[in-house]
Write a protein that binds this DNA or RNA. Structure first.
Lengths: 349, 349
DNA sequence: CTGAAAGCGCTTACAG
DNA sequence: CTGAAAGCGCTTACAG
């Protein structure tokens, strides 16, 4: 496809390429009459400067790379944050940025790493937004060391690279839930952790344990499980848990995340244990399905749209000003009470 | 960010830039020893040629623009096809293409049109994939006339532009459903159409009517509604329909699409009409929720992943070879029977 | 087999 | 106010 270029526009408008460029880039030193004449020709010919030409003169691509790290084959069904894809594209658009969307299966695999580095090095993007990254992933540090600008969702950087910004979940969601459950009279509390390579999962776990300690509740080994952030993980962990503690079941199972909580639901259904009545369940995240589930899932819920909006805004700040006010944000969650937890009228033991 | 360029690589390897370029682009006329030495330097320095430089010499960007046309604010919840976003990115990646994802609210709005034209003209993308476009949208023709390569989902081009490829739904889904319902004994059939500006909706409507005619069933005005492809549309249409035909309700409501069918469900719930038992419901599309709905929704279902895979493949064919075997594909749907339709033991009237 | 040179489409000092 | 020229990072005939 041969496209019209600035030389032809210049010819048509009877000016030089310099002037065409000045008009396009809104330089002040162009008389109104000239500007209008040139603009007219530009409009008529649907002329937009080629990005490659502009970039070679040092302009930015105004493109954000969105790296979705997941080994799932169906992003729409399996990662909650993918539902907020549109928030990212919309917020970027409002700042006049485009989004190059990529899926990365394994950030430890050499080919995948090379792919990511290539995208940055080719100059396709001004910054990268990463979702689903384990803590201390080497390529992230390499990119930062190479001077790239990175926006991370649920991540912390011990080295405090100045061009990293992270938007994270509050640290104390677990404790919020334990407090609530304690008030309901629960004392026999089981905890299903998520993927402990993720910042949020570590915090949630610590916070659960802290809540237990605060209320003087013992943490029993057979009531402490490690699943993933998937439904299957929660399902398997619960089956194991029910088996291991058959003689002395907990009165509540705290899932580290809503997806795992749905797995807990499934295992309880199958074991014919009434959710809420016999074993209460809680989650964390704020999955849109929480409301539709039966019974509705009590969860500490986050405003993902807001989180991604902040992330995009701070990343574009970094691109444009080289600095951001704050490098790590921790956003508050809100305890949303539904029907998955019942009050214990008589305290066990 | 200052990146290493081919001049520096050339210097480090003791060759000219030409040779560096030959190595990178796998030219045959480079001795193995030279090739290895240069590759070594390239690897060590994580060098990848700048895209802008390459493009200026006529290379392609190897990027597909994905234009999701929707006025919804939540793509993940509201457009079924957005769930298959990952299929597009994955299939593109397998062909070594990237995906620039964009959301377009209104393809008739001058600003939006300008945006779309800019993306193409800037040379950011080699082709555009459009989802959610009304038939005869002017900008689509303009792009085709300008020589752009377009991949359309659910669209037909009367002008048969050679560089358009479309992947569509089969035309006869409506008739399939009517046949099935007729066999169950249904004679009083209501039809809720979707957005009649869309190819699939037109075909489904025609096919419903054809099925009715084939079986000699009358099409009653009060049982024929026009909704959109949203839950709200189906809901409102059903409420109206129940009101207008209170004295003589249909025994089945055919929704043009699954989203609308969920709206039908809601309206029937609210009216305390048992789905299946008193009024059967069918949809078309194959929404993942169909199985989870209560009762499960009988629907003609499509393999969206396959459809998008074909679309991406044909578009990359067009980019690379300038031709595609076929310009419009119509993919078969499969009648999936669940519990939303009951057999009528005694035929009404 | 390999380097010097031209050229892609821009922007931006520079000179006037 | 405006044009000619340099330069960004590549690739590709061209010449040797």
């Amino acid at each position: 496809m041969k496209r019209i270029n600035s030389t032809e526009i210049a010819k048509l408008a009877g000016v030089s390429r310099s002037t065409v460029s000045r008009v396009i880039n809104n330089y002040p030193n162009v008389p109104e009459a000239t500007r209008e004449r040139v603009m007219q020709i530009i409009k008529e010919n649907h002329y937009y400067p080629q990005l490659s030409g502009k970039m070679l003169t040092g302009q930015k691509s105004r493109t954000l790379g969105l790296f979705w790290v997941t080994n799932s084959t169906s992003i729409a069904n399996d990662t909650l944050s993918s539902r907020y894809f549109m928030s990212i594209v919309d917020e970027a658009a409002s700042k006049n940025y485009l989004v190059l969307a990529m899926i990365v299966r394994n950030l430890y695999d050499p080919e995948n790493i090379q792919f990511v580095r290539r995208i940055f090095s080719e100059g396709r993007i001004d910054a990268g937004i990463f979702v689903g990254v384990d803590l201390n992933t080497p390529v992230i540090n390499d990119l930062l060391d190479a001077g790239e600008i990175l926006g991370m969702f649920d991540y912390t950087d011990p080295a405090h690279h100045p061009n990293l910004v992270a938007v994270n979940f509050e640290k104390n969601s677990g404790e919020k839930l334990i407090d609530y459950l304690y008030d309901l009279g629960h004392r026999k509390i089981a905890i299903i952790n998520g993927n402990m390579a993720r910042l949020s999962c570590i915090h949630r776990n610590e916070s659960f344990l802290q809540g237990m300690q605060k209320h003087g509740l013992p943490i029993r080994n057979e009531w402490l499980a490690y699943a993933g952030i998937t439904k299957a993980g929660g399902y398997n962990a619960t089956k194991q848990l029910l088996q291991d503690s058959a003689g002395d079941l907990p009165t509540v199972i705290c899932a580290n995340n809503d997806w795992a909580a749905y797995g807990v639901y499934q295992a309880l259904y199958e074991a014919n244990i009434s959710i809420g009545d016999r074993i209460s369940v809680v989650g964390i995240d704020g999955h849109p399905h929480n409301e539709l589930a039966y019974p509705g899932l009590t969860s500490v819920e986050f405003n993902f749209k807001e989180m991604f909006t902040i992330l995009v805004d701070r990343v574009t700040d970094l691109i444009e000003t080289g600095q951001t006010g704050q490098n790590e944000y921790y956003l508050d969650g809100r305890l949303v009470i539904r029907n998955s937890c019942k009050k214990l009228t008589e305290l066990p033991q």
